[in-house]
Amino acid sequence: MSRPHCLQQQSRSALRCIAQSFGLSRPGTSAPQQWHFRPLHSSSRTTSQRPLHRAFSSSVPRQAWKTVEQARSRGRLGVLHNITPTQALIRGAVFVVTGIAIIVYFREERERLERKRIAEQTKGIGKPKVGGPFSLIDHEGRPFTSEDLKGKYSLVYFGFTNCPDICPDELDKMADMIDRVKATSGDVLLPVMITCDPARDSPEILKKYLAEFHPDIIGLTGSYDEIKNTCKVYRVYFSTPPHLKPGQDYLVDHSIYFYLMDPEGDFVEAIGRNFTAEQAAKVIRDHINDWTGPLDRKPRQ
């Protein structure tokens, strides 16, 4: 014990005593600098050798209460000890803001982890797969395979041009979603409509039809078997009979979901009819923001 006297002081001066013994004395106070270099074993002689210290420590602080009760009775203990209302207000505000920030952070984080869980559900081996290889032709008559979906996020919709009411509604919603996502995230989404009615929906028909909704939407068609296979890999209910003629008047039945696929071509999430364009855009945007891998931001030719 090199500093035995510190413990005998009144609390305030004891602190000062300890501070000084560590060389933390304020400038102007006559602190005994020698303490630093004092050998440890010399401590027993401190009192007699250093009267200065005695004098220093005898200065009783003005507000030293004799007992805890006394201090408490004067309202001088506790956190809000000796502060103005403004300071109290600032401290209170800091406390509340920090609390809110923590709540918001944890909520965001929980949502992010939930999205991650959804997004990675279909990654890896032995997981249920939605989507897979296909080989079709786009509305310009060019070949388009599942490989062409990669690079950007893609939004895959199944429909047909002779759809009475649901598909046009959904395609209008898709157009709205595209614009919303584009506005905030840039050119990172590849919207695709795959026809369930290949007998009638030729590339030309699709091109003309989709132009009314959004110029970005790529229409895909192909042979009956290719379309049937594509529907199968996307788990889309497909009931179109095989030998329809273009002139016939008929409807086809199909599932109505938007399939969001990530830049690696893996299924992320299905967006149903119950989503508004705004809600759907948020789902897509959040997944895009979570994505850490490479993402193609160039506009598609």
């Binding site: 041009t161 028909i205 003309k208 273009p246 002139g247 016939q248």
Partner: peptide, 15 residues
């Protein structure tokens, strides 16, 4: 809307 009619050519219904 879905003109199957005379020519047999299908035309997609427009907006």
């Amino acid at each position: 809307t879905a003109s199957s009619s005379d020519t047999g050519l299908y035309e997609a219904p427009g907006r």
